[in-house]
């Protein structure tokens, strides 16, 4: 199944104007984590918070809705969120934890839950795992190359970065710059080239922009827990939704991109195997 096992797929966005303003797409991640916190489904969440340097995120334990909101927006470089999960439980005393993770991070978390060899009393405390779609991720130096060298501006001026419609977009206060995605190829981390998961197939709920109009997100509910929480949030008016059949570009694009990623990276896997290099998949 090209989109993994799921219960439902809808197009959605947060109704809260403040969340709409700061979030990357439909504010699903921020809206759902804040809702789960409010409803005491979770007591805190690990998010990609602001780091010392602009656009260089650091995993952070958010204990309030404000802290969750402060971490909104996509940073196209490493934020090793998984490393903070244990700290959240041990040092912040969180018994019910939420987090957001790109597909490969969900893999680390799910493997730990099924096989917690050296990890005690953490597996069952993760109550909400929101997966975000991911085609690739970049070392920070690659981002610097795109922005400083290829676009010719300082990363300090950047207010938002986004990948979509075949381009990497950079928004400053009064400008919108872009480079074709082709020019970013070869700058991604190479571990991404064997990754077969585009749509966070192991999240409780997974979300990304692809398939929905600007400002909206495509939301996939997968586990019973994830489906229940997302529906509670809709009932509480946190999100407005549209049928996937009624939105453009629609589910077809998401399926296409997911299939393309699997196909391309399977080739890399096969090539590695031919060379005798290890591949876990």
């Amino acid at each position: 199944m090209v989109l993994g096992t799921y219960k439902e797929i809808v197009s959605a966005r947060a109704t809260d104007k403040q969340i709409q303003k700061v979030s990357q797409d439909g504010g699903i991640v921020t809206g759902l984590l804040a809702f789960a916190l409010e409803e005491k489904i979770i007591e805190g969440a690990v998010v990609a918070g602001p780091g010392k340097e602009l656009w260089k995120p650091e995993p952070m334990v958010a204990m309030t809705a404000d802290e969750i909101i402060a971490a909104a927006g996509t940073k196209y470089t490493f934020s090793p969120n998984v490393m903070m999960l244990k700290k959240a439980v041990r040092q912040y005393g969180i018994e019910k934890l939420g987090t957001v993770a790109i597909p490969c991070q969900t893999m680390g978390i799910r493997k730990m839950q099924s096989y917690p060899f050296g990890v005690r009393f953490l597996a069952d405390k993760i109550k909400l795992l929101i997966g975000i779609y991911c085609m690739e991720n970049f070392p920070f130096a690659s981002l610097e190359t795109f922005v400083s060298e290829k676009m010719g501006i300082s990363t300090d001026l950047v207010e938002k970065m986004d990948i979509g419609k075949g381009k990497l977009w950079v928004y400053t206060q009064d400008d919108v710059l872009s480079i074709p995605l082709k020019e970013t190829h070869g700058y991604e981390q190479s571990g991404c080239n064997v990754c077969l998961d585009y749509v966070a197939e192991l999240g409780d709920v997974s979300t990304g922009s692809v398939g929905s109009p600007d400002g909206w997100s495509t939301v996939i509910t997968r586990t019973d827990g994830g489906d229940t929480i997302f529906k509670q949030a809709i009932d509480a008016g946190i999100f407005e939704t549209k049928d996937m059949a009624d939105v453009k570009p629609g589910l077809g694009l998401l399926e296409k991109l997911s299939a393309q990623k699997k196909e391309k990276n399977q080739k890399t896997i096969d090539k590695r195997k031919e060379m005798g290099l290890p591949v876990p998949f």
Binding site: F78, P80, N81, Q105, G108, N137, Q189
Partner: peptide, 8 residues
Amino acid sequence: ALCIGCGT
């Protein structure tokens, strides 16, 4: 060439 920086 397998690390993806997840932090696990």
